[in-house]
């Protein structure tokens, strides 16, 4: 597990060096969403009887943690295409599991930092979501899934430009459509069918339930954990492919 620590520590050192910028950039977009959609647009809006800002915060957390987890691919791409430091991992006697876990742990770290910032902003704007074990477990599974996806995309792509494509065509649409800003039911039927089955939709739905004081169904945890397991195994395959 030392190999895991090596991979994780490298990313932590990089984050530490620009901790201030990192935290600042993590604060800006949630703040804008809260100001624009929560306080500006949604001031007198309620969804199913819930004030819009209360509806928005869990969605914002789900979407942002997904983004943060997935964005570990940026650092991996830089080390692959630009700094070539990824070659160090190719020379070293570390296993695919250690590498993948190290990167996933980075994604989780980033995501929980983002969560903390959004919660602070939420409190400041008068929203107090319920925070319990389910709340954290959902965020954990969400980030685990998308961090694995981030590593997979970084391993498979052949150039940095392809990465932007994936982000623009897959991640950004999910961020907006998976029930983060408005209920999925409002979408046109064909889109709704598609979006309903995305992992982020499930996380958003459950996280919102929990944050508003409700309970999640155990089946959802089972589905999410299974998805995480599957993507983790695919991630191992991708790392193996990326190293050769």
């Amino acid at each position: 597990m030392k190999g895991f620590l090596g991979v994780y520590l490298r990313e932590l050192f990089l984050l530490k060096n620009r901790a201030f910028k990192f935290i600042l950039s993590l604060s800006v977009s949630p703040l804008l969403y809260i100001l624009a959609f929560g306080l500006g647009l949604g001031k007198h809006l309620t969804i199913k009887g819930i004030p819009y800002l209360q509806f928005l915060i869990p969605g914002l957390i789900a979407g942002t943690t997904m983004m943060q987890a997935f964005s570990i691919n940026v650092e991996i791409n830089i080390s692959k295409f630009y700094l070539k430091s990824f070659e160090e991992f190719k020379c070293a006697p570390i296993s695919e599991v250690e590498y993948l876990l190290g990167e996933v742990a980075t994604g989780i770290t980033r995501a929980f930092t983002a969560t903390a910032i959004i919660l602070i902003l939420a409190y400041l704007s008068g929203v107090k979501p319920v925070i319990n074990f389910s709340f954290f477990a959902l965020i954990f599974l969400n980030t685990f899934f998308f961090a694995c996806l981030g590593v997979i995309s970084a391993m498979l792509i052949k150039s940095h430009a392809d990465q932007t494509l994936i982000t623009n065509f897959i991640i950004t649409p999910m961020m907006f459509l998976s029930g983060t800003f408005f209920p999925v039911e409002n979408l046109p039927p064909f889109l709704k069918e598609l979006i309903m089955y995305l992992p982020l939709t499930l996380v958003t739905k459950d996280l919102r339930k929990v944050a508003l004081g409700g309970q999640t169904v155990p089946e959802d945890f089972f589905v999410l954990s299974s998805l995480c397991l599957i993507i983790f195994l695919l991630g191992l395959k991708a790392v193996k492919y990326g190293r050769d």
Partner: peptide, 24 residues
Amino acid sequence: PQTINLEPELNLEENLLIHGLIYK
């Protein structure tokens, strides 16, 4: 390696520490 593949943003000790860890 022929191309320098150190981590430019990290210091010398940090670079070596990571190497030590991934070499177990």
